[in-house]
């Protein structure tokens, strides 16, 4: 007779627990587009006069169509146009004076599809991300990511700040 503990049922117990966790597991992909909302204030925001060349207005209507600076645009061209507007490589008169003055204004309708809205937002964010990446490559020879030293990120973000203002949506379209 040995005095060893019989451990053969240990595996069964562990199996039972394992199966329980297997069943209840959902490896959720907790990812998304992080946004910082502006604080709420009861007063009407003071109107600012902005030079129209510095404002990049994006309107999305209830039919999910885009109007960028007054002309209908396909969503596939939005990223390039945004990038061109912010960086203004050719120093054109009608695009932003410099990246720090560029303002993206996004306005949608209450009847706009959420999917379309998120895609538009995604494209605008992508434009900034690509510009940050280019700047980071030029300055530090590394791709832009959140893991860079804070000072570098500050430097990059200071040069090309992301200013995206969302206007109160219109309510022409039908909600469902």
């Amino acid at each position: 007779m040995s005095n060893e503990l019989n451990a053969s049922s240990m595996a069964d117990i562990a199996f039972l627990l394992l199966i329980f966790f297997l069943v209840t597991t959902t490896i959720v992909e907790d990812k998304g587009i992080t946004v910082r909302l502006p604080p709420w204030s009861e007063e009407d925001p003071e109107t600012q006069r902005l030079k129209s060349r510095n404002v990049f207005s994006v309107l999305v209507n209830a039919q999910n169509q885009l109007l960028v600076r007054g002309e209908p645009t396909d969503i596939r061209d939005l990223r390039e146009r945004t990038k061109e507007f912010i960086s203004n490589p050719l120093k054109r008169e009608d695009l932003a004076e410099k990246p720090t003055m560029a303002i993206i204004s996004l306005k949608n309708d209450r009847g706009t599809n959420y999917e379309t809205y998120l895609q538009v937002y995604n494209e605008l964010k992508a434009a900034y991300n690509e510009l940050w990446d280019e700047l980071s490559q030029r300055k530090y020879n590394v791709p832009y990511s959140d893991d860079l030293p804070t000072a570098w990120i500050k430097e990059i973000r200071g040069e090309i700040p992301m200013v995206l203002s969302e206007a109160e949506p219109t309510s022409f379209g039908e909600e469902n």
Binding site: E29, D30, K31, G32, I33, T34, V35, R36, L37, P38, P39, W40, L118, Y121, N122
Partner: peptide
């Protein structure tokens, strides 16, 4: 979103898939 702003919860994340 408006209600979140009123409640002072400003950091939000639109969940999306890759």
């Amino acid at each position: 979103k408006t209600q979140l702003r009123k409640s002072g919860q400003l950091k939000i994340n639109y969940s999306a898939k890759k």
